[in-house]
Design a protein around this nucleic acid. Structure first.
Lengths: 114, 114
DNA sequence: AAAGAATATTCCTGTCAAGGAATATTCAAG
DNA sequence: CTTGAATATTCCTTGACAGGAATATTCTTT
């Protein structure tokens, strides 16, 4: 049911859960950049930058446009939209009112009377 | 500047980027549960369940309340709030209007005239 | 065609994290 | 205080993944 949504998010999350890739994504938030620009901005070497971009690309977080010698990378909206709508399903948790645990404990006592 | 925010998110993301932990979190969205209940629901063995819960706990995603023999785990709101506000910084990406790349290419041409 | 810039790929190595199995801890009840 | 349930922890092994270094590819320019 919500299986696919979760699957999408888990690959997105694992791609983002690496510091350099997170930095790349936050950098690209400001707009498209070439590999060299990304590497320079973040102090990364070119090969590792390409590798990280490949991971991001394989997970649909980023897309490429070849322009002569260069490859211009930019963020794709979908994974962020998906992540946003996923996180919205936790509204009840984010607005916690500190009565959930009490309710649970009362429920537990009921069960144990059986 | 936004360093701390990123750091918070990266530990949250890496904790969530494991399928079993993701399942645990989605299960706990519906309310607090004991270790045994979580393990049963997800078909996990108790030791691994405890280990995953420890990771989630170490990252502040989950909190425990001891109740006799049992430990009741529940989601903490903060990481989700943080993730939510982080994802909101990608609004511009999520509303992409397909003109970013064009703008970049024009900008690139300008630079190359120098 | 040759040279050089920009990028991608490969191979190697070390590190880290997850699962399995066994064991330790903690608590309740008799 | 012994037993048993619920949970945590330890040790071990294995696989995934990131970085380094070298090399391959692709395109431009001359």
């Amino acid at each position: 049911m919500s299986g696919k949504i979760s699957d999408v998010n888990i690959t997105t999350l694992s791609a983002l859960s690496e510091a350099n890739r997170m930095n790349i994504v936050e950098l690209l938030r400001q707009g498209p950049l070439t590999v060299g620009e990304i590497a320079d901005n973040l102090g990364l070497k070119q090969p590792q930058t390409s590798k990280h971009l490949k991971v991001l690309s394989d997970n649909g977080i980023v897309e490429v446009q070849a322009e002569a010698n260069r490859r211009i990378y930019k963020l794709r909206p979908e994974p962020f939209q998906a992540l946003d709508s996923w996180i919205q399903t936790f509204q009840c948790v984010m607005q916690e009112r500190f009565d959930n645990l009490d309710a649970y404990l009362k429920d537990l006592q009921k069960k144990e009377k059986l």
